[in-house]
Structures are given as C-alpha cells and as structure tokens.
C-alpha cells in the first residue's frame, strides 16, 4: 500500500508540467506565420500526449489503454509527409 500511494502521488504531482507545456505548444500553433510551423508544433503535441497516455495508464491500473498511444504516434508522421508533398510538388497523388 505504501508503494501504491507513493507512485500515485508522484504521477499526480508531475501533471501540471504537462498542462503548461501543452499550452505553450498551442500558442505556437496559433501564432505561427507559416504552415510548416504549425505542423511541427502538432508533431510535438502528439508525441507529448503519447507520454501522458502512458503515465495515466499506470495511474488508472487499466492495461489496454497503452495501445492507443502507438496509433497516435504513427498517424502524426503521416500528416507531416502529406503537407510536405503538397508544398513541394503542388499536387498530391502518385
């Protein structure tokens, strides 16, 4: 019981740092003067949310919640490639 209380308190104390860093990345998404700035900040927000999902699955003691983080990380890479392909060749497709 002492170990469980210690780990739960440790994770809850670390949570406000995530809210601050998510807000700062969101400020860059709103302010960015070009499209590539915004896509880079979305990239960073997504990988940050993956880490937050891992911590919360230890806190809630449910084991199947970690699988959603893997899909989130892979689809964020695909968005990068789409926007880069549009900007470079002015057309999307084969």
């Amino acid at each position: 019981m002492a170990l469980e209380n210690f780990i739960s308190t440790f994770i809850v104390v670390l949570l406000p740092a995530f809210l601050i860093s998510l807000s700062l990345y969101a400020i860059r998404v709103i302010k960015g003067p070009s499209v590539t700035d915004m896509v880079l900040a979305i990239d960073c927000i997504t990988y940050d949310l993956c880490f937050l999902m891992g911590l919360l699955s230890i806190l809630f003691k449910i084991g199947f919640l970690m699988v959603a983080a893997l899909a989130l990380a892979l689809w964020a890479y695909v968005l990068d490639v789409y926007v880069a392909k549009y900007l470079e060749a002015r057309e999307v497709g084969d």
Partner: peptide, 19 residues
C-alpha cells in the same frame, strides 16, 4: 511506441524542412 517514435519522427521533420 518508443521505437516507433525513434524511427519515424526524424524522417517526418526532415521532409517538412526540405519542402
């Protein structure tokens, strides 16, 4: 998930910078 991020994040940001 850690291995997936290590393999795909540098490729994505390099493609974005080149474009």
């Amino acid at each position: 998930t850690a291995i997936a991020i290590v393999l795909t994040a540098p490729v994505g940001s390099h493609a974005l910078a080149r474009a």
